[in-house]
Design a protein around this nucleic acid. Sequence first.
DNA 1: AATGAATGAGGGTTCATTCAT
DNA 2: GATGAATGAACCCTCATTCAT
Lengths: 202, 202, 202, 202
Amino acid sequence: MAGGTKRLPRAVREQQMLDAAVQIFSVNGFHETSMDAIAAEAQISKPMLYLYYGSKEELFGACLDRELRRFVDEVRSKIDFDEPPKELLRSAVLAFLKYIDEHRASWMVLYTQATSSQRFAHTVREGRERIIELVGGLLRSGTRHPGPGTDFDMMAVALVGAGEAIAARVSTGDADADEAAELMINLFWRGLKGAPSESGPA
Amino acid sequence: MAGGTKRLPRAVREQQMLDAAVQIFSVNGFHETSMDAIAAEAQISKPMLYLYYGSKEELFGACLDRELRRFVDEVRSKIDFDEPPKELLRSAVLAFLKYIDEHRASWMVLYTQATSSQRFAHTVREGRERIIELVGGLLRSGTRHPGPGTDFDMMAVALVGAGEAIAARVSTGDADADEAAELMINLFWRGLKGAPSESGPA
Amino acid sequence: MAGGTKRLPRAVREQQMLDAAVQIFSVNGFHETSMDAIAAEAQISKPMLYLYYGSKEELFGACLDRELRRFVDEVRSKIDFDEPPKELLRSAVLAFLKYIDEHRASWMVLYTQATSSQRFAHTVREGRERIIELVGGLLRSGTRHPGPGTDFDMMAVALVGAGEAIAARVSTGDADADEAAELMINLFWRGLKGAPSESGPA
Amino acid sequence: MAGGTKRLPRAVREQQMLDAAVQIFSVNGFHETSMDAIAAEAQISKPMLYLYYGSKEELFGACLDRELRRFVDEVRSKIDFDEPPKELLRSAVLAFLKYIDEHRASWMVLYTQATSSQRFAHTVREGRERIIELVGGLLRSGTRHPGPGTDFDMMAVALVGAGEAIAARVSTGDADADEAAELMINLFWRGLKGAPSESGPA
DNA sequence: AATGAATGAGGGTTCATTCAT
DNA sequence: GATGAATGAACCCTCATTCAT
């Protein structure tokens, strides 16, 4: 027949499927997405999905893995550890928010979806931990004389959490990536005391 | 008969059901929770759930409503707007984290679960907005001479996001509520520059 | 309390319930009617229905019995066996169609509903048989010299069937009871040969 | 693995399912038939029913459509409009009753069942109307000099109604198709006056 | 006499998953 | 290599029916 049956190398097929899966998962969420829908979006048959990924969960996991890796790689590539700390922080925050801004549908929602099922807490937590470690490292390396009890990791947790929240606003178009980055940097660098007005609270 | 099957007034049963539903939903998530499981947990029959709440979605919505209201009420009740700003901030952060700490299973996971289904984004978003407004108000009222472009709401978004991230750590037992509160307060009040060591980054 | 609990003599209650049941059954059909709906219509509680009628089926049966009896009684009362046959036939047909016309919602639909479940075939069939016997008797008594093979009962079956079909038209307002009666009488009395034109088919 | 589970082309399965559905629906009625029962009768799994027909209602509708079409086709094919009117009438009545006689379980009960749910009144009414139009056309074309007020359609309604009633007797085995046809033809052609005895009523 | 509270049982529907071709 | 055909297993929901008051 003319239409459907194309022979594609494995790698291409895999990406094609992941693209479709990410797309549909990000729109409908894990549970509300059917394998039929993904197969339809990928323009292949369902058994192919199972042949390549084994199960819906594994497919979703593969989506998470790819997107998280892409995200980490992207952000890593945008920062230069030789920069002075403040620039480093700015670069990282900007890279983070820019990535979110440019990959709304895929990453942000997928990230959200993943947290919904205990089954993927592992993957997401790991991804988030990697980011937190990255940020924690930034903080540690940027601090000349750290106090003995300074919990850089927990600070990184807060930073990343704030980043995610701001990112959610960015991803919905309710905030501008650049402005939000500036705000975050100021906020974290100088704290509430160092609000833009330079006057600070009492 | 032992003691299970009692005639209870409507109000009591309602709470009993909500308690069970919150418990199970928080552990398994919305989609992975069956009405059977909730009924079993509440030690009642399934039709009762439907008689009182109409559908699984409505039941989940009722859970959300109750927990969010409780949370907001609790935090609100713990802060005193007449305190000086720094104390105010401390009170709020502490109240927030304490609440999470004491209602791990229920609130935190339920909060997370709710974001998984597009259908409840509304409710959760509203709840979160109420909190953000609360925090935004704190900031506004605590700042003597705000700069003209100070975006208190976006700052509140960041703070709440950071709080949620820290809260997640608290809720999993990976952080102590009091210590985490202290860290957050310092972080936000003085920024990274004013890290506990008082020495700050380069 | 003020409102609900009224003491009514048994007979009154029974009729009140049957009225409600007939009303709802006739609108929604047997299977699509819930006992709740009937109780609500009758403004009593469900246990009362069960106390008086035992089950949904028995209640429906009671409805059928009452309506069928009323119908037969009504038609019987309108015809006078001393009239000449043609007048007798006219009276019967008219009484039949008039009754339908005046009890559309109740009888016609209930009659229809009843045929839907094997369980009530009995009651309905019996009722219909009584009518058919009545009509068959009319025919028999009206025929001076019946042929040996004349199957008056089967003729009555046909008459009643035609009557029901016409009645359905009457009950939906698509036919006028008087005109329809005239047509039926002519049709049956003279057959197609004796159509109104008096000319008849080839 | 005896021989049940075969891969069958779509068209074959469709008929197989309809056959089973007609069979079970006709015996138990719409509401009292479960999809499980139909699936069991068709020796397939329930999801197949849903894959092919979407819902119980649609499946029932498909049954109705097929059976009504078959019926109309069959009766139409058995009559020849070039015959003289009386023969035409006889052919039609015979074809009608023969069809019923040969398709008792399926058609007659299905026809009856369909009237039980408001949802299928439409389909059945349409089918009946088609038949009535057919008969009305027969009458019209068979009458040389119709009177101005002759309501052939209403006469057709009566004829079809009588036919259905007779058919019910035939379908239960309480009447012979041929004898019943003869009776109907005589009755309609000559009316009660022209009863078999040729003597007629007073 | 009357009812609010409660449930056992079952039906329609969907989906992830797997054969057989 | 690729797929149309098929299903087991659950899940949501409803309803006739019955206690306990």
